[in-house]
Design a protein around this nucleic acid. Sequence first.
DNA 1: GCTTTAAAAAGTAATGT
DNA 2: ACATTACTTTTCAAAGC
Lengths: 204, 186
Amino acid sequence: RLRKWQERIRTKDAGERNLQFALSEIDRMASALGVPRSVREVASVIYRRALNEDLIRGRSIEGVATSALYAACRQEGIPRSLDEVAEVSRVPQKEIGRTYRYISQELGLELKPVDPKQFVPRFASALGLSEEVQAKATEIIDVSAEQGLLSGKSPTGFAAAAIYAASLLCNEKKTQREVADVAQVTEVTIRNRYQEQIEAMGFR
Amino acid sequence: MSAPADSIEIQNVVASTGIGQELDLEALADDLPGADFNPDNFPGLVYRTQDPKAAALIFRSGKIVCTGAKSIDDVHEALGIIFDKLRGLSIPVDEDPEITVQNIVSSADLGHNLNLNALAIGLGLEDVEYEPEQFPGLVYRMDEPEVVILLFGSGKIVITGGKQTNDAETAVEEIVKRIDNLGLLD
DNA sequence: GCTTTAAAAAGTAATGT
DNA sequence: ACATTACTTTTCAAAGC
């Protein structure tokens, strides 16, 4: 009986240590990504819910912690791409995506698809672009999305192309490579989305 | 006049069967020209038929998985060829091994572009998986028939998970109804 | 969970000319 | 700037780790 008690305490301690580890990892990754404290708290809540619902069984603590942070960013309207999240995590991008889909389904998060507009302020300021360019990029996204061009396209690539197009239109030109680097997409993707978007805008 | 259901094409049929006889795969790999067998990698021996084109996974237990066929008739034909090949190697094969269709993958065209963002919300986020950062298709799990449908912006779709020939047709009619009811069919 | 086999859809990426 | 190849998703069985 004494052994059982010790085992329980040991398990409880282990569980407590695991939770502390997960929360400190969320904190570390959130700092590296530069997301506000409110997002870390949302991520902590999602992680604890996943823990209570026993969703971690068969998955790595780090994977669930990273996915919780990815989900929290989206829920708070300041999304990070899976690439960006994977850069500060020690879990491969593929596993983060798979784990996110799983906990999102099981916890019923029902997050809407990521809106490309939500990347504009962050990408544009990283490129030192003005408010005017940001407003133009936002307009390009709205107009082309309304014409059905967004279906199936990656939100980061869509945002990157709109920012590139806006930088040209506002005489604050950035090269495709510069925009591609901050958005972590290829120049080919920017070129493809850019062509569709300027056509949708009625330019050519 | 061309209904979406008329555009359905079966792309792949997966079926399982068994010859009711244990097999020595090492020996079989030597006797069957073109057979791939890497037990360290995978326990099954891979054997491909040319006409109809299909691939069979043959296991030590005598159970066989056939995949890649374009129709249920092709599955029977391909497995028939394999059964005869085995008999030719003087391996006893059951008279008419039962063949079970496990999965049918079909493609179709709805004939309209689809707004996947609107569809994700309209069909219900709880039944939908749409992560364009990871994959361009919207994944929709339907209960009746129990199939999974992948929907693309072009209006092209993939229906998978069905076991009956008519599952794809039923599913296409149902998904068209649901999309139309949402006013999302241009 | 993973390993292998097949197939479609469309986007993105890496490599090659 | 092109093309080609390859990988992402879903489904399913098989035997074994």
